[in-house]
Amino acid sequence: MEMIRAEQLVYEYIRRDEEGNVEAISTALDHVDLHVRPGEFIAILGHNGSGKSTLAKHINALLTPGEGSLWVDGKDVSLEENVYDVRQTAGMVFQNPDNQIIASVVEEDVGFGPENIGVPTEEIWQRVEESLRAVGMLKYRHHSPNKLSGGQKQRVAIAGVMAMQPKCIVLDEPTAMLDPNGRRDVIRTAHELNREKGVTIVLITHYMEEVVDADRVFVMDQGKIVMQGTPREIFSQVGKLKEYRLDVPQVTILADMLRQAGLDIPLGVLRREELVDAIMRAAM
């Protein structure tokens, strides 16, 4: 069974005037098909307003499809009776860490979710400890979240989601407000959860460097999925990405420039090590 299966998903934002007449309709999702297998790490790219976040909110049943269907772990999200299960299957991490933290002590914040769904006290503590360890924040369990850096807060938010034992985590621009270190820690944490706990990850981001290790990348534009493939396949199409208001990692641009200048550099270089090797080979 697929973790996420979207078929011909459509969602429209409808704006009404004061009398309730329809003033404007904007189609945020336009017949989207998406299939994600359990344990996959996928990334979604797209410019502001391309529909990424709308799609993400469907996976967590915060929005229900206007047309088409979406199943999360086999459950149809548009059925009211499934909403509870869907939200436990797919956890969500948002952009601003300050909006997601509610308790005054880290461990209480992480325990809030499981407590809410009636997990026995002993198990709550167990889950809190496990989740904080998984994101590398165990030693801060008695700290106040206010005193943490942005990246640390975001990892606490991820731990809060982990404590619900979801099969899938959707991260909607989790690093947009973080400094380089915070960014690195959050992305590394997502990969570790994926690798070690088998959690399916959906990462939405504007930082091209963060998706080079994803299994598959999807590019959205005007509510449609317009490109999909491995990071290498996606980033070897520099021109097309620019058309969609996106970019490629710096090393990929540089590799592309060198290749066009006639040097023997392969297409779609993603990582620094690869480019170092390629340049050294070209220099031999």
Partner: peptide
Amino acid sequence: TAGLDPAGR
């Protein structure tokens, strides 16, 4: 530029 797409950046 926080939160903007690359072209917006």
